[in-house]
């Protein structure tokens, strides 16, 4: 009985996503076409990637509020380098991502080394980054023009006009999933998040793992920043605003625990982000007032948190009923 219950809960995201798609397909106007789905995912790629990034931080128990700002900073940096210094696109992107990694490292310096509260450190970091980025852009939109338009417009005809950018998105998801699932680093990450004290006691260098997790988070958010400026074709000063909250909500929606130690990139966080994205695109497709969208998102987050608490409770309950059943054969032996 116990395992069955958990199974249903762990598939809840697929079910929710399916329900959302069906509801909007029925109620909406041409919602379930390939073109509109591609558009939703493509425009939502910054959110999906930031959600992947913040998952790394959440898994070690750090609620990183600077993720949106890191993406923004990386986008601004890459955009300015292209626009003002005429730097090659690839190199500009690399610089943006490196900036993300660096900010992640600064965060970890405060959080891990100086033992400051992660939420407040990253909140402060968010304000600082946004302020600096605005100074550099003079609070004006930076247009990127030809630099990225080719990239944005490229489509794969064979796949019904799938934007080329989506390959990049899929690659990011695969790499993040791989790192978390198949490398020693990923396993250590989960161990540290699950119980830092135990992890330290059995010999895992918890400080190093936390630092690496925050730097990975920064780097992935830097990638999100690059996607953001490509999909938009310009750098706007209000970009990626409040994405930290959307991303954390999406990750939790996808089953990542705010306490760390439990969660996944795919299916977890990616599905969580997709749910939020399709809710807003579906609602605008139906012509619902744009002011209602955050309201519905809020409701969805409440429901997600309730499902999460159900999941946690069923996990924390020590399976007492199986104690007798399982050890009975042992007792039978003299």
């Amino acid at each position: 009985m116990r395992t069955k219950k958990i199974d249903i809960l762990s598939y809840s995201n697929y079910i929710v996503l399916a329900i959302i798609l069906i509801v909007f397909a029925i109620g909406g106007n041409n919602f379930l076409t390939l073109k509109s789905i591609y558009a939703t995912i493509n425009n939502g790629s910054p959110l999906i990637i930031i959600t992947c990034g913040v998952t790394f931080a959440l898994l070690v128990g750090v609620i990183d509020l600077s993720v949106g700002a890191i993406g923004y900073a990386a986008g601004v940096a890459a955009g300015l380098l292209m626009n003002r210094l005429d730097m090659p696109v690839a190199l500009a992107f690399l610089c943006g991502i490196a900036l993300g990694v660096f900010i992640g490292w600064v965060n970890s310096l405060f959080i891990v080394k100086f033992k400051m509260n992660p939420m407040l450190v990253s909140l402060g970091m968010m304000l600082i980054i946004r302020a600096i980025a605005r100074i550099f852009t003079d609070d004006k939109t930076v247009t990127l023009g030809d630099h990225v338009s080719a990239m944005r417009k490229a489509r794969v005809a064979a796949l019904g006009g799938m934007p080329m950018l989506m390959f990049g998105l899929i690659a990011v998801i695969i790499v993040c999933t791989f790192v978390l699932r198949h490398t020693p680093f990923g396993s250590k990450l989960l161990a540290v998040g699950c119980d830092e004290k135990v992890a330290r006691r059995i010999g895992i260098n918890t400080d190093r793992i936390k630092t690496a997790a925050l730097m990975t988070c920064g780097g992935v958010c830097g990638i999100a920043g690059c996607f953001w400026i490509v999909t938009l074709g310009s750098v706007v000063t209000t970009g990626l605003n409040s994405y930290e909250f959307l991303a954390i909500a999406a990750a939790v929606l996808g089953g990542t625990s705010l306490l760390g130690g439990r969660g996944s990139i795919y299916p977890g966080s990616v599905l969580g982000a997709l749910i939020l994205l399709f809710i807003s695109s579906g609602m605008s497709n139906m012509g619902v007032s744009i002011y209602a969208i955050p309201f519905v998102r809020g409701i969805i987050i409440f429901i997600a948190m309730y499902v999460d608490s159900l999941r946690t409770q069923s996990m924390l309950k020590t399976p007492m009923s199986t104690v007798q059943a399982k050890s009975a054969p042992a007792a039978a032996k003299p």
Binding site: C194, D195, S257, R262, M315
Partner: peptide, 8 residues
């Protein structure tokens, strides 16, 4: 005290 990682 039992030293395990419950989620793993």
């Amino acid at each position: 005290e039992i030293q395990v990682f419950d989620t793993m």
